[in-house]
């Protein structure tokens, strides 16, 4: 496939990079990413991946755009309030880059549908706001041998790590089991600076891009944490847990599991 002059212009800042070049840009155009959650993290991730020319982007979310989302979910506009988030997100992505294909999945993810959902994509971005979903995505990706980016944000803090099969710990190695409902606050209860989604969601997009172009080091075996109050990034090395329930030597989790959600997260908000 040869580039059109328009594509050369659109992607010139990528192609000119030694680490990307024409080959890397073509890999991005052949790639597919599933973004779960069109919220604070998913919004910037989706916009940057669309702009980068990732050929096929899936976006999964069951909610409609709410006024309280707009403080940080920059993929939605005021006029989108009430619209399904996946539709609003799709329109924004295609407005930036009509060359890509966007697939909308207006649904709640669960143990019964997650494996089918992720099966059609090369890389998964976890942009969810609650622990049951984060563990579900982790387990499904580990069981499917699929790379994914985990991230979380709250208040002035953010974190992310990348799982690549066989190359380091999974989310469950680090955190084992979801905390009981309401034991640990999520950002719908504790608040979050809007730009935090921009910082961390953009880093998730960065990891996806690097995964596809095969350059540099991914956050496999490391948790990157960011404190916006002190402006400190820390990359904490993560060991693997040999007895991890899902990626360890003798796994006990052989299929995705649903966990109970905190009552105050039921009406969303992250």
């Amino acid at each position: 496939m040869a580039f059109t002059n328009e594509q050369l212009e659109r992607y010139s800042r990528h192609i000119i990079l030694q680490e990307v070049g024409a080959g890397g840009q073509k890999r991005l155009m052949d790639a597919s990413v599933l973004i779960i959650g069109a919220g604070g993290l998913g919004a910037p991730a989706a916009l940057y991946l669309a702009a980068a020319g990732v050929g096929r982007i899936g976006i999964a979310d069951a909610d409609a755009v709410d006024l309280s989302n707009l403080q940080r979910q920059v993929i939605h506009a005021t006029a989108d309030v009430g619209k399904p988030k996946v539709q609003s997100a799709s329109e924004s992505m295609l407005a930036i880059n009509p060359e890509i294909t966007v697939e909308t999945h207006r649904m709640y993810v669960s143990a019964s549908n997650i494996l089918d959902l992720i099966a059609g994509y090369d890389f998964v971005i976890d942009g969810t706001d609650n622990f049951p979903a984060k563990f579900l995505i982790n387990d499904a990706c580990v069981l499917s041998g699929k790379a994914f980016s985990h991230a979380g944000i709250i208040r002035f803090q953010g974190q992310l790590m990348t799982y690549v099969p066989g190359e380091g710990p999974c989310y469950r190695c680090v955190f084992r089991d979801p905390p009981p409902p309401d034991a640990v606050p999520t950002c719908s209860q504790a608040g979050v600076i809007g730009a935090m989604g921009g910082v961390i969601g953009s880093l998730q997009a960065m990891e996806a891009v690097k995964y596809f172009i095969g350059q540099g080091e991914l956050l496999t075996g490391a948790l990157l944490t960011f404190n916006a109050l002190t402006m400190e990034f820390r990359k904490v090395r993560l060991p693997r847990r040999a007895d991890c329930q899902v990626c360890g030597a003798h796994p006990t989790i052989l299929e995705p599991v649903d966990y109970a959600l905190a009552a105050c997260d039921l009406d969303g908000g992250g």
Binding site: I36, G37, V109, A133, G152, I154, S188, A190, G197
Partner: peptide, 16 residues
């Protein structure tokens, strides 16, 4: 010693 914290937050409407 490193402390690793649960961090939720990101996007809603994906799990019920």
């Amino acid at each position: 010693v490193e402390f690793l914290y649960f961090m939720g937050g990101g996007g809603c409407g994906v799990y019920k």
